[in-house]
Amino acid sequence: MYMKKREIPAGVWDSCQNCGHMVYQKEVEESLHCCPECGHHRRVNARTRIQQLVDPGSFEELYADLAPTDPLKFKDRVTYKDRLKDAQRKTGEKDAVIVGKAFIRGRSVVLAVMNSEFIMASMGSVAGEKITRAIERATEDDLPLAIVTASGGARMQEGMVSLMQMAKTSAALAKFDDAGGLYIVVATDPTTAGVAASFASLGDVILAEPGAMMGFAGPRVIANTIKQELPDGFQTAEFMLKHGFVDRIVNRRDLRREIARLIDYCGK
């Protein structure tokens, strides 16, 4: 007998965005927030991601006090301050990046994770500063660096202060590179615009989750500019792999093993 949709207790079942199958929430969580039917990788917030990636209990958060300001006193239909408060209340985080030291399968790393639940992990000054500090910490402590990217791009409410975070993070990576550090990018859905065009494209090794959106310009902007339809699979991780800008597409369940293996090849 079929149950009517509204009789399903909330939060126990839901349907996969990709294949439409009704899936049991608990089963989804056990498969690291991937669809048990089709393998579709759902977005996960930064805390969950960290839990999935690092050895239990090994995460030691850094720079947790950094909080955003409103350098432009920006206001559109709502003020940027209100947007921030709203995002902070919803997520319980101060901004869109969490940084720390951790172990992944026993290998010590500096880890930064972007949180797409916080204003689509747009990169403002706090995100840029925390990513930069993570890079500098990896340089000082001579540790491998892994950044899990997800972002809609630069945070326009912080204007040019946010755009300059692209240059700031890239310059910090130049120093890390000079010091011989290993930098692994894990690109997740969506890795776009200003973040794609800075640290997310500068990994020594670039891994990406299946199906993750990856690109610079927004698809609507491109379609409007060239006045034609975009090909299927445009701006996905698979598209980037095909065109030579991603090293490996890795299932979420294999990420720990893959990162550990890369560290064994390249780490010191």
Partner: peptide, 26 residues
Amino acid sequence: GAFPGIGAEERGISQAIAVNMMEMSR
């Protein structure tokens, strides 16, 4: 801005800009 088009994405506009910033910094 950089050209928003299919070819630009296929040939890695993100990577090109990122590498320029990194190399210009040193």
